[in-house]
Each structure stands twice: as C-alpha cells, then as structure tokens.
Simulated scan of single mutants.
Amino acid sequence: MEDVNLIGESLKFMVLGMVVVFSFLIILVQVVKLQAKIINKYFPEETPKAPTSSGQSDESQRIAAIIAAVTEFRKK
C-alpha cells in the first residue's frame, strides 16, 4: 500500500521538476530575445562596404605573400 503512495509522490516530483525546467527555459529564451533586440537597437550592425579598386591590390598582395611563403617552405 505504501508503494503506491511512493510512486504517486515520485510522479508528482517528476512533473513538478519538468514544469520548473520548462518554465525556466521559456523565460531564458524570452530574455535572450529581448537582449538581442536591445543590442540591435543601440549597436546596429554596419552594412558591408562595396569593394573598391584597392581591393584588387589587397588581393594581389595576399597572393604574392602566399607564393612567397610556399617558395620559402620549399627551400627547406
């Protein structure tokens, strides 16, 4: 007879624990969404700028640096 009472109590605690965890997760998601809205309001993302002609120069310098590194590596 006492076993039925213990099983009932354990089910109650299981449901209560699941409700508490689920409620906490819902509150956490809402707080994170609110935080994202606040951050986007006061610190908006900058739009990326279109590449200019100096972008070609940067790319050429990057390629030259890679070639120099590979050449130096092969000397060893």
Rank of each mutant, 00 (worst) to 15 (best):
A69F: 10
T52P: 03
S53K: 13
E46Q: 03
V32T: 13
A64D: 14
L16K: 15
K33Q: 10
L28C: 06
F24D: 06
L6P: 00
T71L: 02
L6C: 03
V32A: 09
D58C: 06
A50S: 15
Q61F: 09
V29R: 05
F24H: 08
E2S: 04
G55F: 04
T47R: 10
E2P: 02
P44S: 06
A65N: 13
F13Y: 08
A50F: 10
V32Y: 09
S23T: 13
F22Q: 03
Q61I: 04
V19D: 08
Q61C: 02
F22Y: 06
K33P: 00
L25F: 08
T71E: 14
I39N: 13
T52H: 01
D3R: 07
I27P: 00
V29W: 06
L11I: 07
F24W: 03
M18C: 09
T71N: 14
I63H: 04
Y42S: 01
K49L: 02
K41V: 01
G55A: 09
S10T: 10
V70N: 14
V15H: 04
T52S: 12
K49H: 10
L25S: 13
R62N: 14
E46M: 06
P44W: 01
M14F: 06
V20K: 05
I39R: 12
E46G: 13
I67Q: 14
T47S: 13
V70Y: 07
A69W: 05
I63S: 09
I38D: 02
V31P: 00
I27C: 05
T52Q: 08
Q56A: 04
A36R: 14
R74L: 10
Q30R: 14
K37W: 01
F13T: 13
V29E: 02
L25M: 12
M1F: 04
I27R: 11
E46A: 09
S60C: 08
D58E: 12
E45N: 14
K12D: 04
S10D: 11
A69L: 11
F73W: 09
E59F: 13
Y42A: 01
V20D: 08
E46I: 01
G55S: 06
S53G: 11
L28R: 06
E59R: 15
L11N: 08
V20N: 07
N5R: 15
L16S: 15
D58F: 04
A69G: 03
M18T: 03
V20F: 05
R74I: 08
L34S: 09
I67C: 02
G17Q: 03
I39H: 10
Q35W: 11
A65F: 07
G17W: 03
K41E: 07
P51K: 11
N5A: 14
D58A: 15
T52G: 15
I27H: 03
E59I: 10
G55H: 07
K75C: 03
K76F: 11
S10I: 02
I27F: 12
N5K: 14
G55Y: 12
L16A: 15
G8E: 06
D58V: 10
L25D: 07
Q56C: 08
S10E: 13
S54I: 02
Y42D: 05
T47W: 07
S57E: 05
I67D: 13
F73G: 14
S57P: 00
T52V: 06
V29Q: 11
M1W: 03
